[in-house]
């Protein structure tokens, strides 16, 4: 791995707070991190620890008060709104806890919404097969289960073959089995397409399937370690 790949995503003295005066609350208190290219990174932490805020800043949909994030050498703080949109368009895929699918587009079309953004998208039909949604491809979101909808949202994010896939509590709204299936899918995708994957979760067990585990509490990195032995998502239990 080259130095550039090793320091693919670099976070330096990142600070972020909300509110003013007495009500001011610091959410991120000077984070320093690096994430390597192709890594499956899990950010853990209790509610209010700043993990979603960190993800949003990495995703360019929120901004830091100070410090910086650089991705592949490009600092996000130097980017204007247009450049940030282009950055997200070119490099990022987003998966949220809620699937946020377009209700009047079917499965395939919802995935095509992502494909449209990329110069070199993955093959939509092949991806639908990978997602296990082939027989549902003509269904509208309201005809799918929660797990299936989340698969579609993952498909929409991954179809443009982004450099980084950001997942914010992707299993937060799913039951146990569906959560495991979804995590397996994310794991497979990471292995198959080699994207850098950053997942925010409060589920401690998920750390076992990650290459890199970051634990936040009160806006500070409490643990930053790399797994030497990973467990497949399907073998996780909680």
């Amino acid at each position: 791995m080259s130095e550039r790949e090793k320091y693919f995503l670099e976070i330096a003295d990142l600070r972020k707070g909300f509110g003013k005066g007495d009500t001011r609350q610091e959410v991120l208190c000077g984070l320093n991190l690096t994430i390597s290219k192709g890594e499956f990174c899990v950010i853990l932490g209790p509610s209010g620890s700043g993990k979603s805020t960190l993800l949003n800043i990495i995703g360019g949909i929120d901004s830091a008060d100070s410090g910086y994030i650089s991705i592949n050498g490009d600092k996000l703080e130097d980017m204007g709104e247009k450049a940030l949109t282009a950055y997200r368009r070119k490099h990022l895929g987003y998966v949220f806890q809620m699937y946020n699918l377009i209700p009047n587009l079917n499965v395939k079309e919802n995935i095509e919404v992502g494909a449209y953004l990329s110069e070199h998208p993955l093959d939509v039909d092949e991806l639908i097969h990978t997602l296990g949604l082939y027989e549902h491809r003509h269904k509208l979101p309201n005809q799918l289960s929660g797990g299936q909808q989340q698969r579609v949202s993952i498909g929409r994010a991954i179809v443009k073959n982004p450099d980084i896939l950001l997942c914010d509590e992707p299993t937060g709204a799913l039951d146990y089995n569906t959560s495991k299936e979804t995590l397996k899918l994310i794991e497979d995708i990471n292995q198959k397409y080699g994207n850098t994957l950053i997942m925010v979760t409060h589920n401690e067990e998920i750390r076992h399937m990650a290459d890199h585990v970051i634990k936040l509490r009160d806006g500070i990195v409490r643990k930053n370690e790399r797994n030497t032995e990973k467990i497949s998502a399907i073998d996780l239990e909680w």
Binding site: A86, Y94, I102
Partner: peptide
């Protein structure tokens, strides 16, 4: 009504 979808699309790189 579609705020979440718009947020997702914008976060995915759809321009304003």
């Amino acid at each position: 009504k579609e705020a979440s979808v718009i947020g997702t699309l914008r976060a995915s790189g759809y321009t304003k």
